[in-house]
Design a protein around this nucleic acid. Sequence first.
DNA 1: TGACGTGAGTGACCTTGATCACAACTGTAA
DNA 2: TTACAGTTGTGATCAAGGTCACTCACGTCA
Lengths: 238, 238
Amino acid sequence: MRAPYGLNILDNCLTCSVREEHLFCNLSVHAGQRLNEIKSTAVYPKGAMLFIEGQQPRGVFVLCAGKAKLSTSSREGKTIITKLSDAGDVLGLNAVISNHPYEVTAEMMEPGQANFIPRESLVQFLKDHGEVALRVAEQLSRNYFTAYDEIRTLGLATSPSEKFAKLLLSWSTKTAQNDGAGQVKLTLTHEEIAEIIGTTRETVSRLFSEFKKKQLLQLKGSTLIIRNRPALEKIVQS
Amino acid sequence: MRAPYGLNILDNCLTCSVREEHLFCNLSVHAGQRLNEIKSTAVYPKGAMLFIEGQQPRGVFVLCAGKAKLSTSSREGKTIITKLSDAGDVLGLNAVISNHPYEVTAEMMEPGQANFIPRESLVQFLKDHGEVALRVAEQLSRNYFTAYDEIRTLGLATSPSEKFAKLLLSWSTKTAQNDGAGQVKLTLTHEEIAEIIGTTRETVSRLFSEFKKKQLLQLKGSTLIIRNRPALEKIVQS
DNA sequence: TGACGTGAGTGACCTTGATCACAACTGTAA
DNA sequence: TTACAGTTGTGATCAAGGTCACTCACGTCA
């Protein structure tokens, strides 16, 4: 089955197959059926906006395939990327639960697929299935801790090098549990990295040069290799 | 009835009397009774630590009287204050729900009183009373939005003056709905203000001078008067 | 009354990173 | 191939704040 944008549609985009500990996993049969009724699946091209900061919350999106970036902008156009999401993540949950406008913009960074659950249906679903509400609370507090970590990074780490090192480490711990050296596929532009750590493109460029010279990292094409993890950890220090 | 620290014990420290929209308000009779059984009340002196960043979550504290500051520190000793809490606030909820260590330190800024609900009891209570779990979810998402606002402030506002102006406005909107001029009792030291906006004590001092010179604010003893709100709003711009 | 501690104001200096301005490099489409 | 847009590397400049080092003001306590 072929979808637009050269993507294969996943016949059964159940998030459980993607991530075991997931919000909507291991539900009772009845709850699972109900969930299947209220969700709908769609395919998105690169650059598609799932939702935009300030919009009234229409519902949540459960990413099945592809990556998305979550960002906020100031009026002057300065943008910060607050999170990179991939398959299994639930987007827009906070806004939907509290019925506040979406606090971020969610943009697909590559073609992907997502399940959509409208707000009304979800809220009703949670009222009918109290046991899932507690799961939602847990997910929300996980979101909170992620946000809190962001605060620590932005508020406590003074220099861009510190934040950059922290970012590199967070990448390599996520992926490189297999071998010690830590290889990461680098899919972001310097501009985007700058928006994550809150600095300018030029500074990111200089940081790459500096870290390469200090043998902290190495670049092979678009593959990033962490060369000296302890040194990076020493830079972080928070 | 006299308590230590020169504080009168509130005989009935029900949070509902403090804040109507509160988490544990308007419960069913049964739930209310149960809650009364599992909570305990205590009085704290100025400087008392309700809990400390990194500790295993013992339970939540519902502030009845007094103010508390929530803060995080880096290893090098740099500290940021992330929130000032007062009567009615629930502290430690995120940690308790997700069973992560407390992400902040909660310190009493003045003598006060709080209800304590142990973790185990609260979790059991929420399991027994599913309707309250959804309330908790809402509260968590409110916490999340507060955190998110902090991220926006730290990440998007570049200059200390911008953050300072934002802080001043947040103070005056909360208190001065009565008259336009905006009077606030200033209880924080410059040091503490610096920890809120992420700068140094000296810079805060200079900001006060600068804003006074520009007729944006005025100080009468420890009373802060906002003189030119539109100008402050123009400085914020985010 | 004086000693002490804490908080506040202010000047001098100096590092850091933002900004501007190009040049070099990449891939893609014509 | 050329043309072009998007990305990256790098130097020169500059202003904003952090840091340091004081002094002053105001309390409390002995």
